[in-house]
Design a binder for these strands. Structure first.
Lengths: 158, 158
DNA sequence: CAACTTGTCTAGAGAATTAGTAGACTGATC
DNA sequence: GATCAGTCTACTAATTCTCTAGACAAGTTG
């Protein structure tokens, strides 16, 4: 199960993917637009910065921007950074593998073998979805836009 | 991420799937064979019993057995029973859906739309794997004995 | 019935993780 | 140098997970 940290992080990244390249956005703006506690988002963006996904700029006119194009960032890598392994069980993880203590014979562990397939299925989806695809999906799943147009739209129109 | 509860539960169910139909097994035996704390397993099997996956018999010669054939129990349903939704995020769950508070416009939430696809991928794997398939994969995985490797292989290698 | 075996239930302890807050500090801009 | 905005350390509250203790209920056997 995705934590709120990862969820907020993904929302923030989707937001950043929507601004003009070269522009920056304030943490406070991202937080307000997505109903994320500002201080919590500070910490999340800090991690994403350390992992090289975003750049930050201090001082007046500062803020955050993507470090790479949104088509070069996969959702899977973001989730791994914020929440750890994609696999349902750590001994089934490929990039962040760790043996599980209570399992005598890993090669024949039925649970692990099933979860390995589950991991592959998840990774297939998340590693092949880029940030801009994710963002685009939110905009093109259109039904009537009438109700909540307005302030929320100048972000979506990027 | 799967909890130990679900992991233990799956191991126990795989164990039960391996005994003769009509026979019962002691909780203590399952616990010892799989290095599961006995009291914890008590609770887990209790939940599985309430959910109708296993039957229990009291008194001498008692124990647990599957309530249905191991080909009629899916791994997905077991995980749902023990750990809740398969979806990485609850608003992307189909059977155990719950709205998430911090999301104004669910139909256009990019995170949710991606996680919906992830959920489908996970469910595809777990709902289409039955208990006996899971158990079989553990027995034929890599140092297969006399048995034909044909059908079992495409499952084990993913 | 009595003794024994085995599952069932309630309650909760301890640890880990998650979610969020506070406040001082650094560096940039005007 | 005033102000703005990200950075860092530290902390807390709440929740969840993992596991245990112990009383109790229900069958089985003699």
């Amino acid at each position: 199960m995705l934590t709120k940290k990862a969820k907020y992080g993904l929302k923030a990244m989707a937001y950043l993917a929507g601004i003009e390249p070269g522009q920056t956005v304030l943490v406070a703006d991202i937080a307000a637009s997505n109903q994320i506690p500002k201080k919590f988002l500070d910490a999340i963006l800090g991690e994403l910065r350390n992992a090289g996904f975003v750049h930050s700029k201090k001082g007046k006119g500062g803020g955050y921007m993507l470090a790479r194009g949104p088509s070069e960032i996969s959702v899977g890598d973001l989730v791994r950074t914020l929440d750890g392994p994609l696999a349902p069980i750590q001994c089934a993880s490929k990039r962040l593998y760790r043996r599980c203590e209570d399992c005598a014979d890993e090669a024949h562990c039925a649970v692990r073998l099933v979860m390995l397939k589950a991991r592959d299925a998840i990774a297939e989806v998340l590693d092949n979805t880029t940030l801009d695809q994710m963002r685009a999906s939110g905009e093109t799943s259109n039904d009537a836009v009438g109700e909540s147009a307005g302030a929320a739209m100048d972000m979506a129109r990027g």
